[in-house]
């Protein structure tokens, strides 16, 4: 009777956006009289941080300070259509729509600025809210002045419309041929476990992962997804089921007393590195990261259990009972 150490790996891909596409999102941006920019979205933040990363993308694309961008989400009376937050699509779709809207608003802003400055719009540089003529930085103004002039002197709107749609792909019913995704993110996770052959318990010691996510808009939030997924994946691998005797309905769970998810006491050592290979169609090269982080830990843990004790338990969740039964079956085979 002993505890056995094992290590397992898993390498995965994950598609960005709804399968087959056809899932648009729109954004509107308008400039307030004193140079604030409001981004109107009907998108939802589930906790992943959409409100923040969209403000970053809008500020970057507009060329204005982060704090001058307001992101208004979640009201169908004030914002155009968004398909929703799922399928690792939000940062990719919403981000692209926001960049398109920002480009239009930025162009309108620079047209007014050009008139004010008696310069050609293509000669103007807009950075962090400051506007100057290329090669002549002393000829300058700022978004505040231009916005005021646009409103009260020129009678011009500074606003932008954006949409992103990946055209819906067909699917050949005979072969399955289709274009399922916009891009693919990738990850490899290494799991280290300890399996107790007396109790069947599996303890995950460490989850170390390399994620490739195109481009990180906010690295701490990417890390937030990675840690989140590591724990949810571990939980999926070892703990969770609403039907412990699936497909039977017996012992159907009804509370967190029977439906076990990890607590702060259950978390392994979690490490990660993030690679950036910008995608061709994501905003600044983004790929979706929200869902995939919960995927790679699962097979990595199951493979580590095999490495530790030499049995395949491939019916999730890998409960102590299943581990013990598999060990018993193997010992019967070998004797």
């Amino acid at each position: 009777m002993a505890k056995h150490y094992g290590r397992g790996i898993a390498a995965v891909n994950y598609p960005t956006g709804m399968n087959l596409g056809g899932d648009p999102t729109q954004a509107l941006i308008f400039c307030q009289p004193t140079g604030g920019f409001s981004v109107k979205l009907a998108s939802t933040d589930l906790g992943q941080g959409l409100k923040t990363v969209i403000a970053q993308i809008a500020a970057e694309a507009l060329g204005v300070p982060f704090d001058s961008v307001i992101v208004d989400t979640g009201d169908t009376d004030s914002a155009p259509h968004c398909m929703g937050t799922f399928a690792s699509r939000a940062t990719h779709r919403v981000g692209n729509a926001v960049i398109m809207a920002a480009n239009e608003a930025r162009k309108a802003l620079l047209d007014v600025a050009a008139e004010e400055m008696e310069a050609a719009p293509e000669d103007l540089v807009l950075e962090n809210g400051e506007i100057y003529v290329k090669g002549a930085p002393e000829r300058k103004t700022n978004v505040f002045n231009v916005a005021l002039a646009a409103h009260f002197k020129h009678g011009k709107t500074i606003s932008g419309r954006g949409i992103y749609l990946k055209q819906k792909s067909g699917l050949d019913p005979e072969t399955g041929a289709c274009d399922p995704d916009s891009t693919e993110a990738h990850a490899t996770t290494v799991a280290e476990v300890e399996v107790d052959d007396e109790t069947g318990e599996v303890k995950v010691l460490r989850l170390a992962s390399a994620y490739e996510v195109g481009r990180q808009i906010n690295p701490e939030m990417v890390k937030g997804q990675i840690v989140s997924g590591a724990v949810m994946g571990m939980s999926h691998a070892l703990m969770e089921t609403v039907f412990p005797y699936y497909p039977a309905l017996d012992h159907h769970t009804y509370s967190f007393g029977e439906y076990i998810i990890p607590t702060a006491l259950d978390i392994p050592e979690i490490e990660s590195v993030v690679l950036e290979y910008p995608s061709s169609n994501g905003p600044y090269g983004v790929k979706g990261v929200g869902e995939m982080t919960a995927n790679s830990p699962i097979p990595a843990i199951v493979n580590a259990i095999y490495d530790a004790v030499g049995v395949w338990v491939t019916d999730l969740p890998v409960t102590p009972e299943k581990v013990l039964r598999a060990l018993e079956e193997r010992s019967l085979e070998t004797h």
Partner: peptide, 20 residues
């Protein structure tokens, strides 16, 4: 000891590391 004190509080998003 911190983890022990939080063991009755579930979080489904963060994976607890940032909280600790």
């Amino acid at each position: 000891e911190i983890a022990e004190a939080l063991a009755g509080n579930l979080c489904r998003c963060t994976g607890y590391v940032a909280i600790l």
